[in-house]
Write a protein that binds this DNA or RNA. Structure first.
Lengths: 159, 159
DNA sequence: CTTGTGTGGTTGCATAATAAAACCAAATGC
DNA sequence: GCATTTGGTTTTATTATGCAACCACACAAG
């Protein structure tokens, strides 16, 4: 088999999310959807991508339950693509990507926009990882554990 | 030109991070690197990917300043690939991807591992977005603003 | 209701990326 | 010194991407 490898059966949750989001366009489509874009042509013109691959991506996102098709809200017979709760749940991923660029990009002056708290207009704080009890955690303060500590879950690859 | 589109000059920080991280393998390579993997063969066997594309990805990650090559720590003449601070800075992205799978995956029972607080062994709390003053923010509480509110920054596309 | 136009795609073709396998040189182990 | 491991590159096949052309249906005007 020479097909592009799929992470579908992988036991690692990161690989699993990349299965749905890990291509060039999906996260940008979702970004636009979070901005309120709903129509095919609007995605196409804002992202400047080929229509056939947009169609393929939208289909894939719908299959993955990230977008859903709905009748157009303006009464026309066309359809719209709207985010599901699962789709809206990607928001922290987009924030993390954004903050990573803001912090480490080699040409930060080329970055056009910042994410701000709407009420105060001030930049959003960096995402931080915390323990259940609220303690701030650094990467080294965390570790990976088997999901069910003694029920014989075993699958491929690490995670 | 029919080349794969590049997001390099894009003004959106999300597109910019995807330029470096947005392919099938890069984030998984970084995941392994965060686990302590440093050697070519170790990446290759753990990820089960073709050697040529691993070589290409490692080269790309080095070019992007996410990995750096270093002489092997065990005294041998081989080299190692180690994360830079920029590379370690992707940690929140991986956490966000992981938590998204944990929350929304259709078959969560197939997920093998969970991220836990090392001290207590309890799951890490969901990433949350906060304002500078500590207020918890929902996506709708945030908005996008031009980076420099009145210095005439203008580039392509949204963000 | 007929004609024109915009929307939302699909199809065909050229090129680029990915994958598997073969190959290879340098480093290492014996 | 010789076999093996390591860390790749090369070759070739297949898949994905990107552009342009095409097309069906909705809609609007007359």
């Amino acid at each position: 088999m020479v097909k592009r490898t799929s992470f579908e059966g992988d036991a690692c949750p990161i690989a699993r999310s990349l299965e749905a989001l890990g291509d060039w366009w999906s996260l940008l489509i979702i970004r636009e959807a979070l901005f309120g874009v709903r129509r095919f042509g609007e995605f196409q013109s804002k992202l400047g991508m080929a229509k056939n691959i947009l169609a393929a991506r939208l289909r894939s996102l719908v299959e993955h339950g990230i977008l859903a098709t709905a009748p157009a809200s303006d009464g026309s017979a066309y359809q719209e693509y709207v985010l599901t709760p699962k789709g809206r749940g990607t928001f922290p991923i987009l924030v993390a990507l954004r903050q990573w660029s803001e912090e480490y990009d080699d040409h930060p002056e080329e970055i056009a926009t910042i994410l701000v708290d709407r009420e105060k207009g001030r930049p959003v704080k960096k995402l931080e990882m915390r323990a259940e009890d609220g303690r701030l955690l650094a990467p080294a303060d965390t570790t990976i554990r088997p999901r069910q500590p003694s029920k014989g879950v075993s699958r491929s690859r690490s995670g």
